[in-house]
Nucleic acid binder design. Structure first.
Lengths: 138, 138
DNA sequence: CCTTGAACCTATAGTTACTTCAGGTCTTAG
DNA sequence: CTAAGACCTGAAGTAACTATAGGTTCAAGG
């Protein structure tokens, strides 16, 4: 059966570590599970789904606070699609901003690299670039 | 004159906070500066240049350990341009990888959003997507 | 029943690159 | 001389985990 499982199996089936599962419990993202007489955690399919949700949201770059608020909405039953969409839109904006910053980095790094003869001299255009304030007219 | 300054001016001229300057000193990126009789830090132009280097490298996404190794090379005088170029290339690869991951996020987020009618129903395609394992044929 | 080894437990510290805080000291202009 | 503002130290907090130490439980085999 796939109904009841320990933390190890849960972790394997969601591709995360047992430490991460315990961490999510600690932070409140995951509920306190049942325990065996000896204190081992016991999980069911609902936990599997919830953890799957968390992992996929994390992969999409949602922060734990954002995930927490999505989960709270779902837990309270008062789930409005519009609200979820607004959070997603905001997150998409963040992601796009991060892409823009990284692209600027990429451009600068590759432009600098292309100027480099990679010799053994001390005259390095990369170092020069890092030592030179941009613009110069501030 | 611009020759001697306190930590506040140094921070202002490198667009970072005084706390960050002290932090860099703590971690060894910045050297221990001279002090006034009362214990206040005193900086010169060399510090200004070094901190400028650090900040620009950070803006390009270099980690503090990478910056540390660039600075050590420079400090020891044995600066080989080829080595700097290799570090930069490696870093550029990291940056490109991060861009690729974020672009995939962006694509998924915007595709999901476009399916959303943003109504007040409980039937939300975003939530559905997050609850559904990808592929399905794992 | 007993042993053994894997899986599990808790609690704490470490990671990155800082920021924030508490509670005091120094400097300088008036 | 005083008061504001810049500065000082050391410790704790942030995000999202990871790692470590040292002990307990579980399940299978003998």
């Amino acid at each position: 059966m796939t109904a009841k499982m320990g933390i190890g199996e849960l972790a394997r089936r969601t591709a995360c570590t047992v430490e991460t599962v315990r961490y999510y419990e600690h932070t409140g993202l995951m509920p306190n599970p049942q325990r065996t007489a000896g204190g081992h955690r016991v999980y069911g399919l609902d936990h599997l789904k919830r953890l799957g949700f968390i992992r996929r949201a994390r992969e999409l770059g949602f922060g734990m606070d954002q995930i927490q608020s999505l989960l709270s909405m779902m837990d309270s039953g008062g789930l409005s699609c519009g609200e979820v969409a607004r959070k997603t839109e905001q997150h998409l904006k963040d992601v796009r901003h991060r892409i823009a910053v990284l692209k600027k980095m990429e451009w600068t790094l590759s432009a600098t690299l292309s100027q480099c003869h990679q010799g053994e001299t001390a005259d390095c255009p990369i170092i020069d670039a890092l030592f030179t304030p941009d613009g110069g007219d501030d």
